[in-house]
Amino acid sequence: MKFIRPNDMEGLFQNIEENNDRKYFLAGGTDINIQIKNGTIKDAEIIYIKHLKELNGIQIEKDDIVIGATTNISDILNSKIIKENLPFFQRSLESFASPLLQTSATIGGNIANGSPTADVVPLLLVLDAKLEIVSKSQIRIIELTNFFTGYKTNIMKANELIRSIIIPKKAENGFDTFFEKVGSRKSLMISKISLAGLKNISHNKFTTIKLAAGSLNEYPRRLYKIEEYLTDKSLLEIDFLKVEELLNEEITPITDLRSDKEYRYHVCVNLIRTFLNE
């Protein structure tokens, strides 16, 4: 295991530019330390980034809230900016892991680790978050929804990292919000299902619907087909059998150590129903 602590962003870029081998960024350490312990990460290069100020902090930039990748979950929970602009996002993060892990875990780490159960991702998906991905020579902004490519894989190249998460300031404005995280207990919980939703209604019809599910696919995903089906319909016009059918196309729940696929699927159906009815 090789360890690198770059002095600044320039040093960081130099390191990741030079070395394309197996490398991992260490920020909060709540995931990586467990993976090192159980042997999933070995003989790798660890690059420490928690001290780099460019990657940390919460700011308003024009119409966006920009959250540095190594910002701790607890900082988001305590942020005035977030409280004023994204109260639903803030409130929903309270169920993130546990208060003790919130102080170490980072928002960028939760995304980059790529777990299907990542707590922040479904929320960020319905908030239309973007990622600022940087390398030595390039900055590119991509939609979070296009970031993941499979189980624990994403579109980033070996010389890139997430610098920040960009959320439109008004992402929650005017929406009814919904977030449900289902697990075997209320804290220290790894979700079996999570569902985030935004909706607004005009003349009894859903004018906008945004839905994202966690723990139901190889990575958390927006449920676009369902969104499309529901948009411009009133509650009475919705055929829930159709919703179930579409959901079958959108999610691929599995039976694993924590739950069953049938259970996961049906709870997801129930939650969508409740979200629409509330």
Binding site: F3, R5, L26, G28, G29, T30, N33, I34, K37, Y48, K50, H51, S74, A97, S98, P99, L100, L101, T103, S104, L188
Partner: peptide, 28 residues
């Protein structure tokens, strides 16, 4: 040893963390 029990909690810059998941480099 994996942040799931809190028996190793300490304060790092005044905030409670599970010290089993905090590395030496974090405390510099």
């Amino acid at each position: 040893g994996e942040g799931e029990c809190g028996a190793c909690t300490v304060l790092l810059d005044g905030k409670p963390v599970t010290s089993c998941l905090v590395n030496a480099v974090h405390i510099d």
